Simulated assay, not measured.
Amino acid sequence: MSLDRRISKSKRALHDALLLLAEDQPLDKLSVTQIVQQAELNRGTFYKHYDSKEQLLTELIDHVLIELADAFRSPYADLHPFSLKDLTPGHIKIFDHVYEHARFYSAVLNSKVIPGVQERIIDTLKHLAKDVVPSGQMAQTDIVPHLFISYYAHALFGLIKEWVRSDFCYSSSYMSRQLIQILRQQPVGEAPQP
């Protein structure tokens, strides 16, 4: 096994151990010893990569948020130009991402163990939404763009939260279909076109 793969495997084990332990106790109560024992690694391996458990957590969060951004952008990369009517459940990858990182999202949403992360997720979604909200269409309405972006980010995060809290009772493809149906609904108060 190459050195890079060994490093990646060790870091993944430490990330997983931190999340597993965080299900039962706050980060400030966890010790590096508990983390390395759960990961079945030694303290030397931990300190080769991290100065503290907080640095481990920061790396984990940053890694998940980068993957969240990639999953969010996925439909827009495949559709040029982007049109909601062309969007299919197969284009939407955000729910696959959330399911792949189920332990992370469960730890973040089901407890106060990892403070501040929900806000970082919403801020990431707001930043990403700026690239996809049709500004030309907004200019034709009285909707303030940053308010719509905030609404969009919170609504998407709310959908993710509900799914995680339901213990992923629906498949990610079902959630993608639901999101498309929600996005295609007429805005409140707008009459359907004949």
Rank of each mutant, 00 (worst) to 15 (best):
A77C: 00
L79D: 08
E59R: 09
S74C: 04
I35D: 04
D78P: 00
G90D: 15
V64G: 01
R73P: 00
Y99W: 10
E59L: 00
P89T: 08
T33G: 06
I92Q: 03
K93D: 06
T33C: 00
L56N: 09
D62G: 10
V64T: 14
Q55R: 09
E40G: 02
L65N: 03
Y99S: 13
T45A: 14
E54G: 02
A69Y: 00
Y47M: 09
D86Y: 08
Y50W: 09
Q37F: 08
H80F: 06
L84D: 10
V98L: 01
L60P: 07
D51R: 14
Y76D: 05
S74E: 12
L65K: 09
H63P: 00
P81D: 04
V98K: 10
E67V: 06
G90P: 08
D78V: 08
K53Y: 05
P75Q: 09
N42K: 11
L84H: 03
L57Q: 14
T45G: 02
Y76S: 02
N42Q: 11
V64M: 03
H91N: 14
F82R: 01
V64F: 01
I35V: 15
D86M: 11
H91I: 07
D86R: 14
I92N: 07
L68K: 05
Y99M: 13
N42W: 00
S52N: 04
S52I: 08
I61E: 07
I92K: 01
H97L: 12
R73T: 01
T58W: 00
I66V: 15
R43K: 15
L41G: 08
E54A: 13
L68N: 02
A39W: 04
I61D: 02
A77H: 10
K48V: 04
F46Y: 05
K48C: 02
I94M: 08
D51C: 05
Y47A: 08
H91F: 11
K48G: 09
R43W: 01
K93F: 01
G44I: 11
Q55D: 12
F82T: 07
P75G: 07
I61V: 15
R43H: 10
D51S: 15
L79K: 11
D86V: 00
F46E: 02
K48M: 13
L87K: 12
Y76T: 06
V98A: 04
V64D: 12
I92M: 01
H63Q: 12
E59T: 05
T45F: 01
G44S: 14
I66K: 10
A69V: 04
H97G: 06
R43V: 13
H91E: 02
E40A: 14
H97P: 07
K53H: 05
K85M: 07
L60N: 12
I35R: 03
